[in-house]
Design a protein around this nucleic acid. Structure first.
Lengths: 263, 263
DNA sequence: TACTGTGAAAGAATTCACAGCC
DNA sequence: GGCTGTGAATTCTTTCACAGTA
């Protein structure tokens, strides 16, 4: 669900469907590591599960076991792992530590990714104190807010900086991921400032569609949207239930003939 | 999945949705099921954008404008809207209010969905105080925590209940969505209790894969996973950049010949 | 034997492109 | 002319099923 403006997409070969893929173009695009977007998200989940297993002393695991723990089916798991290489042993399974290190490498977790949180309200506070970030290689190194009363106040051990210092502080502390937790109206402006400070990755909690240049990657977490998706499923289930009742012949007390109901 | 073979198999009465050619009347109920999962998430975004436009006094909008504001392309937007019916005017565009009400209906927002938050730590606090929920039809009506010191303390105007009361309180306050904001080790147990209390929708912030019965819908928000996906893209971009440099013939100014891309 | 790795088939989602209407 | 609605084409993702191997 990455918000990606299709503005300046590169040549999308709208060519007539006649010819085979022509490689004669001057610009050769390296596509060696084409891991599907959907698989990347799952790799992160596998990594978490595997990390727990390392701690639990497990050294080897089969695709069946790992997939169950990760909530996917085993064929999908094996396919996902095949995108990053063949690191299993047939008849045995995968070495947990080997898998962990390969997934970490693919996800780029061998580098450190410093995080800045902008907007120190309720959510910003929670994020600044969230233990899950630093423990997974994403140290929070800077906090920003517009409120003068907050500047200098330490939150989660880090003093809040004024938002006007964003460019300078992000540069000096080498921030590579910006987290936007501001009220909606401020989000785009904050985003622009982060971008001009050189931040290339943004995690956006504000319910706003951010416009960014192509080289910036945005992911969003929108609580209201999540709620509404759940709401949709409630509604759909209710509809199905009543539709089934209707199909059962409840409509006007007259049974429909020859209908077999699913178990 | 239109069933077509003549074998004596059971007949699926739950209406194949796909082939259903009933265009008459407001049989939108049947349609609901045919809406792709991915489209549902976007409908929620369109709704938010449209709501903003109502407030801004906009009465009519074209697919081009709306899609730009929502960060998708216009063909996708039109396709998404076509799943819920044909409510536009050719040559003109869509009536904003009409669209809003139809999307709200499809997403089931005509009913109220009461929310319970479990785990009143940093994140739970933030969620309890989050203004975006009630304003969009998701009132927070109950809070739970294991900590006895917290019980009775009001957070965001609602007193925290002890987690042992979860079944009873959820029933009496008609909770339909449970939000899990507990530490990871507690999440599955909390989930089980929510399910036994009759909650059918869960939004899970704990970095744990929840096991639930089929009739329960779970959505997860995993901050570490989001971070790692961003990290992957940083790494990929770095790889591409260096690969491109190499392919550009930086070696001695002579282009590389006959580069073969992965089959 | 028990499991991985992977082509090939099936299924979803996206995009194209144009008919149809205002 | 401008814009929607939608089949058809395309691309992406998942699943199947089995060859291959420790």
């Amino acid at each position: 669900m990455a918000v990606k403006r299709g503005a300046g997409d590169e040549v999308v070969t709208t060519t007539p469907a006649t010819a085979a893929p022509d490689l004669d173009g001057p610009a050769v695009r390296e596509r060696a590591r084409a891991i599907p977007e959907a698989a990347v998200a799952r790799l992160a989940v596998y990594l978490r599960v595997l990390s727990g297993m390392v701690d639990g002393g497990v050294t080897t695991i089969s695709s069946e076991e790992l997939s169950a723990a990760a909530g996917v089916n085993s064929a999908k798991l094996r396919k996902d792992l095949s995108y990053i290489g063949s690191y299993g042993t047939r008849g045995v399974g995968y070495d947990v530590e080997v898998l962990v290190s390969h997934i970490e490498r693919i996800l780029g977790l061998t580098r450190k990714h410093s995080v800045a949180v902008v907007g120190i309200g309720n959510l910003g506070h929670a994020l600044a104190n969230y233990g899950g970030f630093p423990s997974r290689g994403f140290p929070v190194v800077a906090l920003f807010d517009v409120d003068d009363d907050l500047t200098g106040v330490p939150v989660g051990g880090i003093p809040v900086s004024h938002i006007d210092e964003i460019e300078q502080v992000c540069a000096s502390r080498e921030v590579s991921i910006g987290v936007i937790a501001t009220p909606p109206p401020a989000a785009q402006a904050v985003c622009d400032r982060l971008v001009s400070a050189g931040v290339q990755c943004i995690l956006n909690f504000a319910p706003v569609v951010l416009q960014v240049p192509d080289h910036v990657e945005v992911r969003k977490v929108d609580l209201a949207v999540e709620m509404q998706i759940l709401s949709f499923h409630v509604a759909r289930r209710a509809d199905e239930a009543s539709a089934e009742q209707a199909a059962n012949g409840m409509v006007n007390g007259v049974g429909v003939e020859g209908v077999v109901i699913r178990p």
